[in-house]
Simulated assay, not measured.
Amino acid sequence: MTETRSGGPIGIFDSGYGGLTVMKEIVSVLPEYDYIYLGDNARAPYGPRSFDTVYHYTLECVRWFFEQGCPLVILACNTASAKALRTIQQNDLPNIAPDKRVLGVIRPTAEIIGEYTHSKKIGVLGTRGTVQSDSYLIEINKFFPHVNVFQQACPMWVPIVENQEYDQPGADYFVKKSIGELLQKSDEIDTILLACTHYPLLLPKIIENVPEGMRVIPQGEIVARSLQDYLRRHQEMNKRLNFTTIEGKRSFFTTDSPEDFDRQASVFFGEKVISKHVEVQHF
């Protein structure tokens, strides 16, 4: 590659830290782009909040990304993707930024997850908000109408991860409990989708508690490959992004304490993170 462009960064958003597991995979696949990450940690978690609240919080953050010059924003948050994405795409973008795009994590996952199952029975583990939205049921059915989807909310999993208890014995009870409740819904489930970006940190414990041979699928790599394909198919957007022949820039922001964010974020991202505090509520 010899091309160097001066454009805008790709924005990656989550209510907290979990989106960093998606960003990690995106950067691995597409290291040459610039990225800005924003965690709305001051108002996290989004999972228990109403559709309207999640929509307003997410829109404020999307507007902030646009102010930073991002032509493209990825909602690396299942709750925001489930409760806010469609309204932002259909109602807000045409008015505030018709030339910009906001993408989520649910659709790219739904487009491919049915290819992993032989029994045509998939389990979905997510936050209460994601499960109650039925977004995965609806989207997977569009692409794989013959696949049955069984959902299970795991309300304790995000707090366990964010309190850095994901590798401690205390997490075992809650992981085993939620997986057991999911598998009681069908003994033919052969594939489990982790429909929350926090859950990859619990992956070792999840694998310990599922039957041998069952596939457990995190979203990060799926979303990264989907973004790569999107940019290949949408050259007009690709040309508007900052692209270099070497590794791009990565900037991190939080609506809460940078010190707390940096300490936690390094666990999710896999390398040292230095963030800055930002206010988004005034947008």
Rank of each mutant, 00 (worst) to 15 (best):
F268P: 08
T191D: 06
R49C: 03
L201V: 08
L103M: 03
V216S: 05
R43I: 12
C61T: 07
D92C: 13
V131R: 04
F66M: 10
E111N: 03
H56I: 15
I112L: 06
I160H: 03
E221D: 14
E162T: 12
V158L: 12
Q168N: 13
M237I: 15
V161K: 09
S50K: 06
T254I: 05
D262I: 05
A195Y: 06
V223H: 00
G248N: 02
G104N: 03
G16C: 11
Y33V: 00
D229Y: 08
Y136N: 05
A44L: 14
G123S: 13
Q152F: 10
R225G: 02
E139S: 14
Q219D: 05
I206H: 01
V149C: 11
R250G: 10
R101D: 08
T255F: 04
V54L: 07
Q235A: 14
P98I: 04
I179A: 02
H118D: 15
I96L: 08
N148W: 04
S226E: 05
I246L: 15
L75P: 00
G19K: 04
I140P: 01
Q151S: 14
P200F: 06
V22W: 04
I122D: 08
I106G: 01
P258C: 09
L103Y: 01
Y136Q: 11
I106K: 03
Y33N: 01
L72T: 02
Y33G: 05
D14H: 12
V73C: 01
G47F: 06
F252E: 01
I74A: 02
Q132R: 13
Q168C: 10
P98Q: 00
I74D: 00
